[in-house]
Design a protein around this nucleic acid. Sequence first.
RNA 1: GGCUCCAUCAUCUAAUGGUUAGGAUUUCAGAUUUUCAUUCUGGUCAUAGGGGUUCAAAUCCCCUUGGAGUCACCA
Length: 460
Amino acid sequence: MVVTRFAPSPTGYLHIGGLRTALLSYLWARRNGGKFILRIEDTDFSRNDEAAALAIVEAFKWVGLEHDGEIEYQSSRLAIYQEYAQKLLDEGKAYKCYMPKEELDALREEQTARKERAKYDNRYRDFTGTPPEGLEAVIRIKAPLEGSITVHDGVKGDVVFNVADILDDFIIARADGTPTYNFVVAVDDALMGVTDVIRGDDHLSNTPKQIVVYEALGFPLPKFFHVPMIHNSEGKKLSKRDGATDVMMYKTMGYTPEALLNFLVRLGWSHGDQEIFSMAEMLELFDPRDINRSASVYNTEKLDWLNSHYLKNMPNEKLCELLEFHGVILVSHDKKEILLDAVKERAKTLVEMATLINEVLVRPLEFDEAALKKGYKEESKAILEAFATALKNSSELHLPSDYHHVMETVVAQLEIGFGKIGQPLRVALLGKLSGPGLDSVMAIIGVEETLARINALLKH
RNA sequence: GGCUCCAUCAUCUAAUGGUUAGGAUUUCAGAUUUUCAUUCUGGUCAUAGGGGUUCAAAUCCCCUUGGAGUCACCA
């Protein structure tokens, strides 16, 4: 069975980069009928934020990812970590170190000054004497002193680390007894039966340490897949400073989960020339072994394109539902089908769509200066009046085509081009020169409101 | 700075060692549309540089350059 996990530290909202690794882990687990675990890495109590786990779950819910079982909180598993640390102590694979923090810092400073690598000097590695009084010990694991550790990575290939370059007897439990990251990750992944670790490649250099823990504890190694980072336009790791990194921000900006997920899955992964992937297709096609080795730059233009694609192809009923979040309530509107059909092809986001809808539904309070100048000329008045009269004399106006017919008649009568009536009418109805088709707009707001808006412009 | 990773259009990417280096987004031009948008058609744009190996290199090897990540009693 394939077991994957997403293991964020609860420092805030769900990050867009986190969502991507979560998605990939989720896809791989589901594709194999396995399990996808959500584990909160909250062993550093000073940095915990209780709301964070909830925020992550909320974001998962929005995009439709679902984890299996209960959320695992590392803070509630401290006894387990202590047990395994003790086991290593008992077996002589770890030891207590009484070196004070200040002394360690001083040592590091010296080493750095000498241009050496900062590392612990193993002074307590084989200590058998009496421990110094009044000092709290940390627990250090005995890391190999020489040789190399190879990470067999499903994305990067075999990555060899020289022990002398990167390792020392690193701390697995702090002086206050709480365990540290590299220790708990290995313990938990092993205990929870995680078979495939899919995570950001910023963790690649941690992996040798975790392998040391796995081996000391006699746990079998999982498969590792270190997926490349998402970069910002400057080519750096995406961070909070880059603006929209909170997944839930995408909801407020009017993106759909389908578009966001589709966008993310195509960063660093592809399937031939295919651009559009439904969740079903992702589940059928995704394989972590196909992930690219290089980082990709996050750019919103493609996201926008995907989002408009999904918007265009969404049933009106669903659109109606989603628009409520953006303050547009259409359930009981009898012309909502015409309205939605008229706006769905011209909006990149739900926010834009909501704006478009309001521009149709709400009588314009003012007329755009430039639009007036360009679209409402001297001759326009008479044309609008003629059109208003024609409207009043028509009956049974319901569909856009009915209104279109009236326009045609007037245009023919006055022997003018469509533009001569379209421009001023557009100014009257919408207050500006762009927007949905006029026949649709009139069908949506009805004859009375159409006449009222024309009147308002004539009196302007 | 040490260690590690990475390198195809502006961006996301495709290409059993053999293709006029393909697609998508963006952009530009044209068509459609009373407007805007959509849609359609077409165009511009790439194998970082240098050495090898090979009949043949985007693809394999080496070097250079550039970029990124990471080096805690954070995760």
